[in-house]
Design a protein around this nucleic acid. Structure first.
Length: 898
DNA sequence: CACTCCCGCCAATTA
DNA sequence: TAATTGGCGGGAGTG
């Protein structure tokens, strides 16, 4: 990532390798020449010999293979050169690290060194992410190929994918124009819209969604068959629109790339397994899909995925399903697209700092619907046929040998059929498994379930989270665990913290889960608004708190597992089943506590009313957390660019908080940044939950945030201090209300959540809350809208890390959080707060600060996001979504309680 | 052995 | 017709 940044930042372009340059120059210069210049020439010249080159040569001599092709040699050289000379950068660096390659080995470039992903990074390093509008950067394929030392064919692979995202455009033969990421958000937005149309519809209505999912699931399962049906669609090839043709182009890597991206954008979980993607993308649809075809598709997807990974839009993860692990990719790019991506850089106020963005996010959904065609040529997606098409594909694939895929899908199906069932299943699993994985997976599932509805795509289980974490990237850090537990939204962050096993996990875990909770964590909100607490990290810290809570919290790491499990297990079923978490409601206290413990993470408190405020969303308290996340997301969106976020994340894997911080937002309040780390570090320590407290006044009219930094406390202090343990990282208070509200955070709450919380947490918290402000419901948590589902999404961790993009939609976040919350405590259920609303509505002005929140959100989101996302999408699909989802949740919540 | 995915043949397109 | 694009899938590298 660093590298990327660098490259971006840096000089615009090229430059790069000296040696290369030389050679290039020739080529390069041609900028205009449309024609290709000469590959030949280039090749021949291998001039730039570097020391390494010599080695290589020797090596090559040694190996016949090498010898054979001069080309290769040449290629290599360049590469090497580039590596060495150039930027050794990170890219290589990274690579190197990974492989550890090294020097020696250079000789024979390992396969990794020749990977498309690496190649793509090198390619991207040559151009500025955000080139000045004025200058047009032309790309000569030949030049690039020679510089990078690869065959042109490979460059096509990269360029085609980049072209699908409009990062480049073809101007002439051998000539491409580099646009950079300026339009990336727009492109993604369009894709999202298109994706919703095609795939999304499914989601649109819940029912539909379910159905769709259902279908998907079936399809997947079946695999097979025929495909029969298929009526659907074809959208697959939009372009084709013309369809006609189709010829080759239809199958084009470009289209596949766009569709692949769409799947991510539509997916609630933001995770797409290769097999599912392959099935869906098999345009043909026809069933046929032979196995071979499937394999081919997968190969292509790997190619695309490598490029997207280099762009920082997705990352490799593994989804654990019943069957086992499946390779999958998680979207880490921006989820929402404000109008412009640029935001990152600077939005002008106009854009609305936060609100706007956030809002934008929210809005997006709506918008999405509208747009479509943007894609232009390549993009042409068929809008039509969305659902069906998807299904077909799925079905079509049928053959699918890979049942696994199906399996995952299956889950989804189930979900579709009934989330509840799924939930139940999950729970069961969870319980059974209790084990970590299980938990994770389940969680994921749950989330998925929840989300399921939304998209089939989302199918992927979260479980992978851990895997996610795995990612080399920073993300890995936290997320991992947490992710799993989406439910815990908070946890996520926490979990990450937790992850530190070292931490007192024990303490957290079991101990006193409750303890902490009780004490601290509270938030009082005045009316309306919601608060979010994120705590993540701290859990560890919380340990203190924890004792009660601590257990949980700390445990996080383990916790995460634990948590989920706990939560999941216990509640999971409950939760899972309905997003609403009614279950929780049922047993409020105890369960909650328990759950909470498990959770750990964050809790949100929402005022009772909030929902109202929130409006539709509000409904379910569950949403609270989710809501928060959402907000966060929004913020994220606003400010950060995905990439950035990513970076940040990477950098700090920390928790959400950290992430948040990075984000701009952090309002002043955020002081904590450091804290965050600390918190983590401290895990044990009491903590500091990072909080941000945003004063209402501050501008965020709508929100108040507390961030981990303990500091927040001030405001919050009440609780916070007490809460010490709380991990709550953040509290967000949306709505205007906030202003009015005092927020109280209890640090603990996270912890509380998790563990035992209930009592402690929930109880305490809830109580507090309830008492304090919320009385109404108890519920501590509020979820915003969607939250509903949220429940669980495990993903969280990831998100956090990646805050940037992760952003899922609010929904996801919310959901998660919500879910988490809900899960945790019944309390949550209580009100659904809608974060979103808060923000939006009240918000008057969001300030930049809000942005931060976003980060926070991200955190939260992550966890929850998975599940939610779907919901969101759905929602999005229709504006209704808000309402609907919200409503649902509300209903659920209400019901559930019932 | 499964997962990745490099490599490059060769067909479709384009100039 | 030659060159450019790019689908495709064998099979090798990696773990």
């Amino acid at each position: 990532e660093n590298i990327f940044d660098r490259s971006r930042m840096a000089p615009k372009t090229p430059i790069k390798n000296e040696p290369i340059d030389l050679s290039k120059q020739k080529v390069c210069t041609p900028e205009r020449n449309p024609i290709t210049p000469v590959k030949i020439i280039d090749r021949p010249q291998p001039d730039p010999w570097t020391p390494t080159a010599n080695l290589k040569i020797l090596v090559s001599a040694a190996s016949p293979d090498m010898r054979d092709r001069e080309k290769k040699k040449e290629l290599f050289r360049p590469i090497e050169n580039s590596e060495q000379s150039d930027t050794p950068d990170s890219l290589q660096y990274d690579i190197v690290d990974d492989s550890t390659v090294d020097e020696f080995e250079k000789q024979r470039p390992s396969r990794k060194q020749k990977s498309l992903g690496l190649l793509c990074q090198k390619f991207l390093a040559r151009y500025p992410n955000y080139p000045l509008s004025t200058e047009k950067t032309t790309i000569s394929l030949d030049e690039v190929a020679s510089v990078l030392g690869v065959e042109r064919r490979r460059i096509y692979d990269i360029v085609n994918v980049l072209e699908s995202l409009h990062l480049v455009s073809r101007v002439a033969k051998n000539q491409y124009c580099w646009h950079g990421r300026h339009n990336l958000s727009q492109t993604l937005k369009m894709l999202q819209e298109a994706g919703e149309l095609q795939y999304g519809e499914l989601m649109t209505s819940q029912h539909k969604e379910q159905d769709l999912e259902y279908k998907f699931g079936e399809q997947k399962r079946e695999t097979i068959p025929d495909s029969q049906d298929r009526p659907l669609l074809d959208f697959s090839e939009p372009d084709c629109s013309s369809a006609s043709a189709n010829s080759r182009k239809d199958k084009s890597l470009r289209i596949m790339s766009q569709k692949f991206v769409m799947l991510f954008l539509v997916s609630k979980t933001k995770i797409v397994t290769l097999d599912i993607a392959a099935k869906i993308l098999i345009e043909e649809t026809q069933d046929t899909v032979d196995h071979s075809k499937f394999k081919t598709k997968v190969r292509r997807l790997y190619d695309i995925a490598n490029v997207l990974t280099s762009l920082g839009l997705i990352k490799k993860v593994h989804v654990t399903e019943e069957r086992g692990r499946k390779p999958a990719f998680k979207w880490i790019g921006p989820v929402e697209f404000p109008e412009k991506t640029d935001e990152l850089r600077g939005h002008s106020p106009t854009s609305d700092p936060l609100p706007g963005t956030q809002r934008g996010a929210c809005v997006q959904y709506q918008t999405s619907a509208t747009g479509k065609q943007r894609f232009t040529r390549h993009a042409s997606f068929n809008s039509a046929q969305p659902c069906e098409a998807t299904r077909r594909r799925v079905s079509s694939e049928p053959n699918s040998p890979h049942q696994e895929k199906q399996a995952s899908i299956v889950n989804s199906d189930e979900n579709c059929s009934k989330m509840i069932n799924l939930a139940a299943v999950c729970r069961q699993k969870i319980e059974e498994d209790t084990g970590n994985k299980a938990c994770d997976t389940e969680t994921i599932l749950n989330s998925a379930k929840n989300s399921n509805i939304t998209l089939p795509l989302s199918l992927l289980p979260v479980s992978g989270d851990s895997d996610f974490c795995v990612n080399p990237l920073p993300q890995a850090v936290f997320p991992v665990v947490q992710a799993d537990v989406p439910s815990f939204s908070l946890p996520i962050g926490i979990s990450s913290q937790a992850s530190h096993p070292s931490t007192p996990a024990a303490s957290k875990t079991e101990n006193g889960k409750p303890t902490l909770v009780p004490n601290q964590p509270f938030l009082c909100f005045p009316s309306s608004s919601l608060f979010m607490l994120c705590g993540g990290l701290q859990e560890n810290n919380s340990s203190e708190l924890l004792p009660t809570a601590g257990d949980l919290g700390n445990g996080n790491a383990e916790a995460q597992a634990a948590v989920p499990p706990t939560v999941c297990q216990k509640r999971s079923s409950h939760k899972c089943s309905s997003p609403s978490a009614p279950v929780d409601d049922e047993e409020p206290a105890p369960k909650k506590q328990t759950l909470e413990h498990s959770f750990l993470p964050l809790s949100f408190v929402v005022p009772k009313e909030p929902s109202e405020s929130s409006k539709a969303e509000s409904s379910p308290g569950s949403g609270c957390s989710a809501a928060v996340h959402l907000e966060m997301d929004r913020f994220d969106l606003t400010s950060p660019a995905a990439p950035e976020a990513a970076n940040k994340e990477s950098i700090k894997p920390l928790d959400c908080q950290e992430q948040e911080k990075p984000s701009e937002n952090k309002d002043p309040d955020e002081p904590p940044p450091g804290n965050e780390h600390i918190s983590k570090e401290n895990a044990n320590q009491p903590f500091q939950p990072q909080y941000l407290y945003v004063q209402p006044t501050a501008g965020l009219s709508s929100f108040n945030f507390l961030f981990s930094a303990n500091q927040a406390p001030g405001a919050i202090s009440l609780a916070a201090n007490q809460m010490p343990s709380l991990s709550v990282p953040c509290v967000m208070v949306p709505s205007a209300a906030l202003a009015s509200f005092p927020v109280v955070c209890s640090p603990s709450f996270t912890s509380p959540l998790s563990p035992a919380p209930d009592g402690s947490f929930s109880a305490a918290a809830s109580t507090n809350f309830s008492v304090s402000s919320l009385a109404s419901t108890t519920p501590v948590l509020i979820s915003t809208t969607a939250v509903v589902t949220p429940k669980v999404s495990p993903a969280p961790p990831v998100d956090p890390q990646q805050p940037p993009h992760p952003a899922l939609h609010l929904s996801p976040v919310l959901t998660r959080s919500c879910s988490a919350v809900k899960l945790d405590s019944p309390v949550c259920m209580g009100h659904p707060v809608t974060l979103l609303k808060l923000q939006q509505p009240s918000s008057a002005p969001l300030t930049p600060k809000s942005i931060r929140p976003a980060h926070h959100e991200a955190f939260f989101k992550t966890p929850g996001s998975l599940g939610d996302p779907v919901a969101w999408k759905k929602n999005e699909g229709n504006q209704t979504r808000n309402a609907s989802s919200v409503q649902r949740r509300l209903e659920i919540s209400s019901t559930s309680p019932d």
